[in-house]
Simulated scan of single mutants.
Amino acid sequence: MIILALNAGSSSLKFAVCCTDSNTFPMEGIIEKIGTPDIFGVLKNNGEKLLLTLGGKDHQAAIQVVLATLFHELKQSGQSIEAIGHRVVHGADIFHSATLIDDSVIASIAQLSPLAPLHNPPTLEVIKAAIALYPSLPQVAIFDTAFHQSMPEKAFRYAVPDAWFENHKVRKYGFHGTSHSYVSAEAIRRFNLCPDTSNIVVAHLGNGASATAVRGGKSVDTTMGISPLDGLVMGTRSGTVDPSLHCYMKNEAGLSVEEVTDTLTKKSGMLALSETSSDMRDIWAKHDQGDSKAQMALEVYSYRLAKEVLALLAAFPSKIDALIFTGGIGENDKRVRARLLESLAWIGFEIDHELNQVGGDTKGQITKSNGPIAAVIETQEELEIALQTKALCQ
Rank of each mutant, 00 (worst) to 15 (best):
Y182E: 03
L54R: 00
T212W: 09
D38C: 05
A132M: 11
D262N: 12
S97R: 11
I34D: 05
I81P: 11
L392I: 01
F316L: 02
S369W: 03
N207E: 06
H96R: 12
A203N: 13
M296G: 00
D361W: 11
D361T: 06
R304N: 14
N251C: 14
V183L: 12
I131C: 03
S369E: 10
H353S: 11
A92E: 14
K307F: 15
L341M: 13
S184F: 01
G348Y: 01
T276P: 00
L298F: 14
P161D: 13
E299A: 10
D242P: 15
S227V: 07
I109S: 04
V241T: 08
L245R: 12
L112W: 09
E258W: 01
L355R: 14
A116C: 08
H168K: 13
A338H: 03
L205R: 03
P117K: 03
N7L: 04
S227F: 14
F25H: 04
G231H: 10
I131P: 06
P26M: 02
K218H: 08
L273K: 06
H148S: 02
N46S: 11
I373A: 10
K169H: 14
H176D: 03
N45G: 05
I226M: 13
L229T: 04
L392R: 10
G91D: 03
T53A: 14
A311E: 09
A8E: 06
H59P: 15
H176G: 13
M151C: 11
L229D: 07
K334N: 09
Q76S: 12
H148I: 02
I63V: 15
F143W: 08
I109V: 14
S179V: 03
S219G: 07
C194A: 12
I109A: 06
D321Y: 10
L6N: 05
Y182M: 08
V88R: 04
S113K: 10
Q111R: 07
I366Q: 08
T240Q: 09
G254R: 11
V160Y: 05
A315V: 04
M249N: 00
S11Q: 06
L273M: 08
A253S: 10
I142T: 05
D361E: 01
V336N: 09
